[in-house]
Nucleic acid binder design. Structure first.
Lengths: 124, 124
DNA sequence: CCCCATTGATTACAAGTGTAATCTAAATAC
DNA sequence: GTATTTAGATTACACTTGTAATCAATGGGG
């Protein structure tokens, strides 16, 4: 799958929210967050199809679009790519950066603890 | 500071490794990892200067380049940007993704535990 | 049946990127 | 001192990206 740009990602988000969806539905969803012209969104849809990130099935005259991979799949791949480039593939230093810049909340800490507990249970 | 591309980032890495450094030194360092032409590296250096990511001081006929911000500063900003886009700004779900795709090692877990302990000490 | 609205397809176009080659001025080798 | 090397500056060029506008086909309204 070719690289998805940030704007294309916004369109994908709209599809992950619910799919399949017509271009019009997607345009409507996006208009609450962006100010893109209809034509712009259609261009982005075409490019996503060309990149094999989404596909469509013809429904009478218009298309119903749907993603070809799950959001989780995509965000994990992106995360691993960034962690690989910036932190030699290890995630702890990234979290350390968040800690150092005071971007960690109690909630984050609790969630991390839960994750660790689960990991230890699965890998004892 | 304008966005740094992936190729430009490679050049920055060479400078973070040690600076100031001449174009020749940088080219040499990069050649162990890439196959870029000298001219390509020079172009990237120019672009980084234009983007105010690096600067230089003239040393006789050639330049000695140096970064204008620390690697840590850059990687934290990038990480926060990704976490913001993909995980609504919260880092725990990213770590959860790593756990789910079995990308967490015992070392990672230990480091995370240490981070948490430190955080709790600082924020009791 | 014909015109209009609407859909997707095609085209546009400037800025950014990857990947260099050429130009120009200065230093160095004889 | 002149020819050559070398550094950075300028130019190149195809591809991608952001942001649409135009084209062409088709379905619906009258």
């Amino acid at each position: 799958m070719k690289d998805i740009t940030k704007t294309e990602f916004e369109v994908l988000e709209a599809l992950w929210e619910q799919s399949p969806a017509s271009a019009q539905e997607i345009i409507t969803r996006l208009n609450t967050k962006n100010t893109w012209h209809d034509k712009t969104v259609k261009t982005l849809l075409s490019r996503l199809v060309k990149k094999q990130a989404i596909d469509f099935e013809k429904q009478q005259r218009s298309y119903l679009y749907f993603p070809l991979f799950a959001r989780d799949e995509y965000v994990i791949k992106e995360s691993e790519s960034l962690v690989s480039r910036l932190f030699k593939g290890r995630v702890a230093p990234l979290v350390a950066g968040f800690a150092d810049s005071d971007a960690l909340s109690k909630t984050d800490i609790d969630e991390l603890k839960a994750l660790i507990a689960k990991w230890e249970q699965d890998n004892d």
